[in-house]
Amino acid sequence: MNKPIVEAGTVGLVDDLSGTIPSKPKLGDKLLEGKQEKVGVVGLFDDPHALVKAAEKVRDAGWKQWDCHTPFPVHGLDAAMGLGWSKLPTIALSLGFTGAALALLMQYWMSAVSYPVHIGGKPLFSWPAFVPITFEMFVLFTAAGTVLTGLWMCKLGRWHSPLHDSGVMAEVSSSRFALVLSAKDELWSDGARSLLDEAGCTDVRDLFEDVDDGRIL
């Protein structure tokens, strides 16, 4: 697609409207050396309500590669973005039931097969006594499954992104609401930012990323 290459020495954030490059370096600037490519545009809102309205517009325009970034989960944003129910609980609970089955199997095998101890003719597979550990292992596997599935689904463990470098993230963490249109989307064009302008966003910026970046932070 259309990804203009910007010369070396520029910082992560370029004010497209005026065409000037901000001279005052920002946090993380010193890391940015070499070529950069434009990876999208970000629109910043001060009001979650305006973000939800803008998200509805982007969704209806048929965008796929885009996201909203908010300091807290905003009511109604999932629907406005057209996101379905997360599959996370299904996966985590499946892992939980696997854990429960393994726990019961372990207790059965150890008590009744590997080293059976006969006491007063009592059954070797005395399952009621195995319920507490089976339950605890269900909870443990569900919890571990939730965290692992969550890390994977939330794409955590990737410490570096254009949002972090440009300083947009610092504004979002505190109290602003960002809508990012990615250059990877089929609908991407130089006019993409006009979509954000139309949605009433007064603070639209381009996002850049280093080319061939091997950093983890």
């Binding site: 996201d67 909203c68 970034h69 908010t70 300091p71 807290f72 989960p73 905003v74 944003l77 999932d78 973005m81 996101l83 129910w85 997360s86 996370l88 609980p89 985590a92 609970l93 939980g96 339950f135 909870v139 569900t142 919890a143 939730t146 965290v147 599935t149 969550g150 890390l151 689904m153 939330c154 794409k155 955590l156 463990g157 990737r158 410490w159 570096h160 992104s161 949002l163 972090h164 993230m169 979002v172 963490s173 960002a178």
Partner: peptide
């Protein structure tokens, strides 16, 4: 862990938190 407040992440995160609460209660 590189958290960036993405709403796609929040959507999973909230479900994860709810599930955690549901299993931590029993």
């Amino acid at each position: 862990l590189g958290w960036n407040g993405s709403n796609r992440a929040w959507s999973h995160y909230e479900r994860a938190y709810g599930l955690f609460a549901a299993i931590a209660t029993p």
